[in-house]
Every structure is written in C-alpha cells, then in structure tokens.
Design a binder for these strands. Sequence first.
DNA 1: AAGAAACACTTTATCGCTAACATGTGTGCA
DNA 2: TGCACACATGTTAGCGATAAAGTGTTTCTT
Lengths: 352, 352
Amino acid sequence: MFKDAFVTEKPPIKNRRPLTLRDVSEASGVSEMTVSRVLRNRGDVSQATRERVLEASKELGYVPNKIAGALASQRVNLVAVVIPSLSNMVFPEVLTGINEVLDETPLQPVVGVTNYDPEREQKVLYEMLSWRPSGVIIAGLEHSDAAKAMLKAAGIPVVEIMDTDGQAIDACVGISHRRAGRKMAQAILKAGYRNIGFLGTKMPLDHRARKRFEGFTEVLAKEGVEIADREFYEGGSALAKGREMTEVMLKRTPELDFLYYSNDMIGAGGLLYCLDQGISVPGQIGLAGFNGVELLDGLPRQLATMDACRVEIGRAAARIIADRTTEAGDSGGGERVELTPMIQPGDTLSRR
Amino acid sequence: MFKDAFVTEKPPIKNRRPLTLRDVSEASGVSEMTVSRVLRNRGDVSQATRERVLEASKELGYVPNKIAGALASQRVNLVAVVIPSLSNMVFPEVLTGINEVLDETPLQPVVGVTNYDPEREQKVLYEMLSWRPSGVIIAGLEHSDAAKAMLKAAGIPVVEIMDTDGQAIDACVGISHRRAGRKMAQAILKAGYRNIGFLGTKMPLDHRARKRFEGFTEVLAKEGVEIADREFYEGGSALAKGREMTEVMLKRTPELDFLYYSNDMIGAGGLLYCLDQGISVPGQIGLAGFNGVELLDGLPRQLATMDACRVEIGRAAARIIADRTTEAGDSGGGERVELTPMIQPGDTLSRR
DNA sequence: AAGAAACACTTTATCGCTAACATGTGTGCA
DNA sequence: TGCACACATGTTAGCGATAAAGTGTTTCTT
C-alpha cells in the first residue's frame, strides 16, 4: 500500500507507533534477543554486531521500554522513597544522600510525598508498591496498620529512616529523637538556664518532634524543672512564625531565660526577633533549635542546634537497599543504624 | 507434598511468591478478568461479586501490578517531572503546584533531578522516558540536542516550564526572565538609584538567571547606566554567601547605592549584613532580590523582590498535561502560558 | 411472545521484553 | 581427526495484566 511505503520512508512524526526492539532488530539485521543483549551489555555479542545494533538504535532514536523489561525479568530498578514533605529542607537533604549512593548502582529513587498524613502515606505507598520496587525507604516508624501490613507483605527491603525510637518493620536508620531532646535539655540545664519555654509545631502527627519534646521534658523533670511556657504553630512561613511566637511568649512570660525551638527555622525567627528587640542573647535569654540547617550560617549570630545527620541518614539507608539487592543471597535483614547527633552550641547557648 | 500444604495453610512470610490476579480470582471464585474489572471500577459487575472480590483482595493483601497493567493497556499514569535541583525551594514549590492539580487526576508525578547538568538531564530524561510516561514537565528551554530529539520523538505532551524566552518543543509555561530583569531595572532607576551592583550565581548553566541579568543590563544601558560592580558565587549557604559578597562588594565599591541580587536568599543575607552594619536601607542603599520566597516574611525588613509565580507555573503545567491526556481527541499542542511576575517593593526599594 | 438490548460474566490474544534453552560456529587439545 | 567448549546467535515461552470479542441470562420493548 502507498501509506505503508510512506510511513517507511519518512515517519511523519505524528501517527508513528512507538519503536520496539523489533524495529531495531530489523534495522540492524539481527534478532530481537541480540539487540536486547547489546542494549543491556549482557551475554556474548561480537564487537561488530554490537556496533551495528547501537548505531541502528541511535539512528532510530530507540528508547527501551522498561515496563516490558521489568515485567519479563521480574526486576525493577526502582527504590520507593516516601517522605512527609519537600518544603522542609530536611528531606531534600536526605534525598541528596540517597541519590549520592544510588547513583553508583542501577537503582533509581522514586519519591512520594505524604504531607504528614497517614492516610495519604498509605495511599502513596500502595501506589508505589504497585510498581514493584526493589526496596522502600520510608520516613518514620509510625504507619497505619494497613501500611505496615503492605510493607511486610511486599517481600522487599524496607528501611525506615529518621527515627530509631520504636519498633522497625525491617531495617532502620536514624537518630534517637528522644535522646536528642534529653541531650539538649542537659546542655541547657548545665548552662544554668531554668525558666525554659518550648516553641514548636502542633505535634499530633510530627512524631519526631513529639519524641524530642518528651525526651526534653523528661530530663527537666528529673531536675525538678518544668517547661515554663509553650507555644505551637501550624503552617505559614516558619521564620515569621518564629518571630510572632517568640514575641507572644516573651510578653506572656517575661521571666523566661531560654527558648527551645523544635526546628531551626522558627528558632532563626526567634533569634532575629530578640536581636531586633535588643534582647541580649545568650546573656538575657538563650536559644536553641534543632536540625543544623545550612541557612543558619548566614544569621548574625549562630543559633545553637543539633545536627540531625540528614545526608548521612540518606546515604546509609540507600546503602542498605543497594547491598541487599545486589548481594546474591540477599543476606541481611533488620539492620539498625543509630547515628549520634552532636550539639552545636553556636553563640546562643552558653551563658558566656 | 508437605511443603505445598504448608505454604497453602499459612504462607510463611518468606518464600511466598508475589500475589497475582489469579490468586484473587481463585479466592473469590470468578475469572481474573472480573477481578480486574472490580479493582478498576470498570465495566458491569454485580454488587454481590464486587464485594466478594474486594473482600478476597483485601484479605490476601493484594496489590495490583501496574507494570503488567501498563504493558497490557499501553497506558501509564505517570508524568515525568525533570528539574535541576531540590535544594532551591523554587522547585519544591513548583512540585506543590503540580501535585495540587494531578491529585485530582489518575496521574502521578515522578521527579528526576539534574543538578543543572545537561548531560545528567539527558540521562535522567532517558531513564524516565523508558517508563513511557503520559507526559513530561521539564524545567527550562535549553537542552542537549539529544534530549530535544528524545522529547520530540516521545510522542507525548511536553511542557517546558519556568522560562518563556526561547523556542519551546511543545507547550511552555513560565515567565519571561528577560522581562523580569527589565522591569526590576526600570523600578530601580525610577526610584532614583544610579550606582548599581549585581550579585548572583555563576551563570554558565543557570540560563534563567542569565536572562534576568541580560534584561536588567539592557534597560540600564538604555539609560546610560552601567553595572558599577558585580560578584558571583557558587555553592555554600546562600544566606552566608549573600553576607560575604555584600561585604566584599561594599568595601570594594563604597559609592554603590543599590544591590540587585539574583535570588532572595543571597538578598536576605545582604539585607542582614546591611542592618548589622547600621547601613540605612533603603535610604543609603537599596536592595532587591528575585523570587518572592516565603522565608522573607520573617526578616526584620521586607526585601524587594519579584514573584516568580512558582506554584502557579506548576499548576498550569500539570493542567496542560492532564487536559491533553484526558481529552479524547488529544486536542492541543504548543500551548504557551506566560505569567506576569509583579514587583513587590517591600521596604528596600523605594527611597521613601 | 419474539427479537433487541442490557447485564454479568468468561475466553483469547496480545503488550514488549527477557530467561532459558537450543543451535550453529570456530578453536584448542589430546 | 574428533570431541569438548567457549563464543555468537536464534527460538520459545512466559511475565501479569487488559482489550476485545464471545457466551449465556435477564429484562425490556412493542
């Protein structure tokens, strides 16, 4: 038919059906299997045909169909990464660590965002698992029962990250937020502060912030100190919120001599507020945040904080997945990596 | 055999092969096809069987295999999103917009990060296209020839975002950075500033920053004004860099009366530096950034900036993809959406 | 009351690839 | 010379789903 001749001559960009291995095999005069071998660098293929195939493939602009490939080989080089948010900076940094390690493997991360919503987490997880990834990296140890069941049933490596205070499904990489809270409390008490205020996010769903808070109050309680005031926020620009909350709290409870913020962003806001108001830091009032975000480097004074080891968490988690998918006898299971965050006293903690 | 009996009785979490439609169909006594129909809510199924199937499916913990589904139906509900970075905050916001829109469709975004490296972009794109997504959203108009070829050949909707100054492959959503640079220059000149310094990233690969710079200098030139000093940075904490660069520049060129920063983060650093030094802003020196990041709300003074419409860009891009994949006659092609960024003069531009 | 149409399913044939095995060469070694 | 064996390819049979077409039942129609 004319039409066919046409199509063969110069595929009119539009109604051209997608290229397959067959097209490449015909163009290079070998079997589809050989083309497949060349494209995957697997098995014995002579240099001559290899070149011929590669050329034909490039010529046509062929892009392999991984869907078909994955189905046939029962192997998917994807790693599902499920995190609560991208606007927190914490998680992009974790992703950086994951990328770093996976870049040297055939594995590829796929990110899903839950917005701190367990229901959404479950949905996202279901979606991701339906692509049959080689592994899952998921933030937190708290998940819906259904989500836990899915993870257990998936039969793939699962690494829960960020937090080690709790029962992991399989492997686990993170820091103990409870301990982090305790450490900070100790440091603050040691510096001599006694009237301590806490400022943070509303915590029903931010389990890690909650655990830090619990560890924090636990140590204070042992010394007979109670949180003198507290304030919680939700949404909005964290920096601005930090400002506002600090103002509110200092007006309400002027005798405070220390403010512990559940993250560096609101802490930075508080710091800026104090400096604005001419409040002497850390003399009159001490401040500390949590996370060690890079941002802080540019502030007029260095906020005391605690590094959450974000990049390292990402790296370690990715390494576990990579090792387990590579190693023949899919060895391990249940790895547990607890990193130790260090206090960075900055300029706002020691009372000189 | 004993072993089989065992496996049937109580699948010992380990050597259990993954569940398939067949397992569900056997468990509920209908054909695989019927199960498939139920799970996808498609076609006629009686209420009775529907329930039976759903129960069996939940009971077993079945998760459909989208790989197989996609291959069979030749439909993949993924949208590839290719962006240069996640640590810039600009892109997470774009993603937010994309998510917002796609959440109401069956489509799902998959993110790839290029680190501003064209070669990496090409690789990431290749990877993504090999999953045969329903569409591509990609940042920028500048791509390697091979990347452009792939995009053209893919036969799917392609939306290039962020930038409208140039030739799009297919659709395009963004702002004109050249115009944004021009507008800012006009506003600065109008406010009476004449000794203007520019601070930004090293630009070989950040085409949008480059275009803003070009637009900016173009307008200045028309008025016979030349950039009095300039400074570029790379890597590190943007806030800290803003501080440092500002210090360096003001020491080198004390007669400057305005500093234009290529992004808000370094602008904020500069602002903090000026306030620290007791330099009167905007009296003695005016400042402006670019992007309208939320962060700025918390600063002691509101930095002049220009909203880059990030969330809206994400929304519009996603809408184009969604519309084209839904609509029967896959209508359009070549949509072009140019958004208009507005100057937010804040407290650092008008000379009172 | 007979044919059409709606319903509730099942059967069959792919989708594009890869695993596993089959086939056909040339080489080395006894 | 012949047999093993590495190499270079081809063949066949799925992977787990869905589209499309097929098979019985009901339920309208008029």
